[in-house]
Amino acid sequence: MKKLSIIFAITAGIFLIQACEKDKPTPTPTPTSSTTKMHIELQPVGESDHEDLVLNQMYLNANGDSVSFSEVRYWLSNIELVREDGSVWAEPNSYRLIERSALNKREEIMLEVPNGNYKAIRYSIGVDADHNSSLDSVKGELSPNVGMSWTWATGYIFFKSEGHFYNPNTMQRELWQYHIGMNANYKQVDLAFPAPVNLTGEKELHMHAVLHTLDLFSQPNVLHPIDNPVLKMMPADKTADAAENYSSAFELHHLMLE
């Protein structure tokens, strides 16, 4: 009987430990010198590389349309760094919301990169198909709370921008809204470094890239807000055009180790 009680106590103890195990906080890995901090700034610009986008200011785009932006928001995901030998480091849980709006500005991010020699960066605009089929993901910053998902047609809004355009017919400023998503429009951006960068953990890497916001309407596909002021899920050909435009509108401006 005593033996039985002891076995029972041990079993109970294990059971109890197991029961409580999930309450323990998972330890956060402390950065070591085997990694380098990389700061990425993705700056939306207006007419030139140096000119920060001014919200609600009218710009003349390459199609001759007058447009303004009241917000630019997108999911930046699956950041990868390409080593000189072509191998790739992929950041885990790499989902971030980048935004410029009247309420929020978030264009600078930081990641811990394993040391090595890198020649390029890749990232995606939007959410990959694996994570775009459900709104209850807890990866990275993915959240149903931030107005970057559709509830009536499950999926994330990959890229959301809105503003006004001048309609010469009505002689009024009217609203345009591009809310682009759906798996077909998930796009990867590939930016080659001007020269390979050796990360040793001693200095931090600063990368500055710009997003040519006006290219949304013209590079390479011509989109006139007057023809389709609202692009949401449809028409599919126009949303695909917009996705191609914004994903090719990123330009690496400079890299700096300091």
């Binding site: 005593k2 009680s5 002891i6 029972f8 106590a9 079993t11 109970a12 103890g13 059971f15 109890l16 197991q18 029961a19 409580c20």
Partner: peptide, 17 residues
């Protein structure tokens, strides 16, 4: 006592888990 203690632990674990 040992038996009661262990029984208590099991019950506690069951209630929490």
């Amino acid at each position: 006592l040992l038996f009661l203690l262990s029984l208590g632990m099991v019950l506690l674990a069951c209630d929490r888990a």
